[in-house]
C-alpha cells in the first residue's frame, strides 16, 4: 500500500497542478468586481489537494511492507473491464436500437460475463426484469419514464 500511496500522491499532485494552471482558468471565467471570485473555491480545493498529496507522497516514501496485498487485484481489474465493456456495448445499442436493447444487453451481458451459463436464466432474467419495470411504471403507477 505504501508504494501505491506514494504513486497516488504524485498523480494527484499532477492533477491538482493541471487543474490550477489549465482547467480552472480555461473553464471558469473571472467574476464581476466586488464579488467573491467564482474561481476561489475550486482553487482553494485544488491547492489543498496539492499540499495533501505532497504530504501523502512524503509520508509513504521508503520500501513497501513485505507481503502486503496489492491494492488492485487482477480479478477486480478484470471485473472493471468486463462491466465497463458491457456498459459500452449497451450504450451503443441504446443509440442504435433503443432503451429496450440497452436493458436486455446490460442484464444478459453481465449475467454471461459473470459466469452464468444456464440458457433459461440468461433469457428469462432480462425479460422478467424489463417486464417488471414496465409493469411498475406504465401499469401500476401510470407514468412514462422514457
Amino acid at each position: 500500500m505504501k508504494r501505491a500511496n506514494a504513486i497516488t500522491g504524485v498523480v494527484l499532485a499532477i492533477v491538482a497542478i493541471l487543474s490550477l494552471v489549465v482547467i480552472i482558468p480555461w473553464q471558469i471565467e473571472t467574476g464581476p468586481q466586488g464579488m467573491m471570485s467564482p474561481r476561489l473555491v475550486p482553487q482553494i480545493m485544488m491547492g489543498c489537494i496539492l499540499l495533501l498529496s505532497v504530504l501523502l507522497f512524503v509520508t509513504n516514501l521508503g520500501p513497501d511492507e513485505t507481503g502486503a496485498p496489492q491494492p488492485f487485484s487482477q480479478a477486480e481489474l478484470r471485473a472493471l473491464a468486463l462491466i465497463g465493456g458491457i456498459f459500452a456495448l449497451s450504450i451503443v445499442l441504446y443509440y442504435l436500437i433503443g432503451p429496450l436493447a440497452f436493458g436486455v444487453t446490460l442484464v444478459a451481458g453481465s449475467l454471461i460475463g459473470l459466469g452464468e451459463r444456464r440458457p433459461l436464466v440468461i433469457v428469462a432474467m432480462p425479460l422478467v426484469l424489463m417486464l417488471m419495470l414496465w409493469a411498475l411504471f406504465y401499469k401500476v403507477l401510470g407514468t412514462a419514464i422514457l
Binding site: Q27, P38, V41, I49, L52, S53
Partner: peptide, 25 residues
C-alpha cells in the same frame, strides 16, 4: 481530507449562484 476536497471541488461544477458564471461545465 483529500477525498473531502475532491467532493467540494466537484460540488462547484455548474452555474455559480451569485455571479452566474458557469464553472467546469
Amino acid at each position: 481530507l483529500i477525498a473531502a476536497c475532491f467532493g467540494i471541488f466537484f460540488a462547484t461544477v455548474g452555474m455559480e449562484t451569485e455571479t452566474f458564471v458557469p464553472r467546469l461545465t
